[in-house]
Amino acid sequence: MPVSIDIDNLDKRFVMRHTRSIKESVLWLLKGRRGDLSRKFSALEGVSLTIQQGETVALLGFNGSGKSTLLKHISGVMLPDAGTVRIRGRVAGLIEVGAGFHPDLSGRDNVFLNGSILGMTEKEIRQQFDSIVEFSEIGEFIDTEVRFYSSGMYLRLAFAVAVHTDPDIFLIDEILAVGDEPFQKKCLAKIKELNEAGKTLVVVSHDFDMVRKVCERGVVLEHGRIVQDGTVSEAIGHLRAG
């Protein structure tokens, strides 16, 4: 199996800046850089992870452990301070519900905009449009402004677009908690289907039951370091043990 995601010794430090204006920065420089204008901390430290094509990986850990940050490095939103991140093929992320959706546009316009943002060509979107609408169960509301959608509808449309981008790597960050039971089931089925088609999945979720159903491998992050990498049951066990 070819490698899908290869992360080697990834470090990411964030600067907690306390000021954002030139005046304050200049004053700080003039005062001989006294006091801390910025404080650095490591959000990811020495993270190495190789994921084969078609693997299903649950990324687990407490809030602030660096899960979202790691996904953002895989999608290219963030760049490493040290180490390398390499991927094969197209990434689609559901990092947050409806990122790239505009409330003042209709569902239809948003499908085009979001599909295009996620890397689909015009032709691909046109081909997939009906299927996207069908999957989302939005029906006639597709020409209504998205601001009038319920959060469930919002999620369904966002998810429908994302699964139709035909990504090679699919990143899911804590979004499946939204939506009603039947749609969650449908999403899980779709995710499984994607995986059977050989897509790589990386899922962040606090819903252990869901994660157990979808993922085989489990990786646990703690303060930006990988502390456990094995089966999903082992990972959940590690977390439960504290």
Binding site: S75, V77, L79
Partner: peptide, 30 residues
């Protein structure tokens, strides 16, 4: 195994904009 792996998040600048003409059009329409 690593053949074909690329680092994500590195853009070719304005050349990428030319490659994303359709998205540019959608952003302008929006």
């Amino acid at each position: 195994d690593a053949v074909g792996l690329v680092s994500p998040g590195h853009s070719a600048g304005l050349r990428d904009v030319v490659g994303s003409r359709f998205l540019l059009k959608l952003l302008v329409d929006k």
